[in-house]
């Protein structure tokens, strides 16, 4: 991380296994923590939190960004903060519910696929040599 966090800002990185969705300084973060919504301002005590599927709100210089996250973790130490999540979608204020639904639906579908993949994999493995 080359960019140093400014005095009164948090340097936030939102990372998924497939891409970095957001990297930059922010003034305020609102998180969908497992135990309820949580707001983070610069100078927050070091924390590690589990996130549930929901909307993460970032405010920087008066502009607000909404990002849908699919479970994961939030970690803040000093001026640096990380969000580690399996999937993150940048969205806007009108589509918040849609995004959450999409993330949740994706998760449900994944569950189904898991079962299907398992069956297919076993079947393919069981095929005898022709």
């Amino acid at each position: 991380m080359e960019v140093k966090g400014k005095e009164n800002k948090i340097f936030l990185s939102i990372i998924t296994p497939e891409e970095k969705v957001f990297v930059g300084n922010v003034d305020f973060i609102s998180l969908p923590a497992k135990s309820g919504s949580m707001g983070v301002l610069p100078g927050h005590i070091p924390t590690v939190t589990r996130l549930k599927t929901g909307i993460l709100k970032i405010i920087n210089d008066g502009t607000t960004t909404y990002i849908g996250v699919c479970r994961g973790y939030f970690e803040i130490m000093g001026t640096k903060a990380y969000v580690l999540t399996e999937r993150a979608i940048i969205t806007d204020v009108e589509n918040l519910e849609k995004t959450v639904l999409e993330l949740k639906k994706k998760h449900d579908i994944t569950q189904e696929i898991t079962e299907d993949t398992k069956r297919v994999s076993q079947a393919v493995a069981g095929l005898k040599k022709l």
Binding site: A33, P46, V48, R50, E75
Partner: peptide, 24 residues
């Protein structure tokens, strides 16, 4: 790179270290 340059005891885990560890 490690962001944990502070003493471990100061970190707050929500809900608990064990639960975070189990899932992570």
């Amino acid at each position: 790179e490690s962001i944990s340059q502070m003493p471990f005891a100061e970190i707050l885990y929500d809900p608990s270290p064990r639960e975070v560890l189990e899932s992570i």
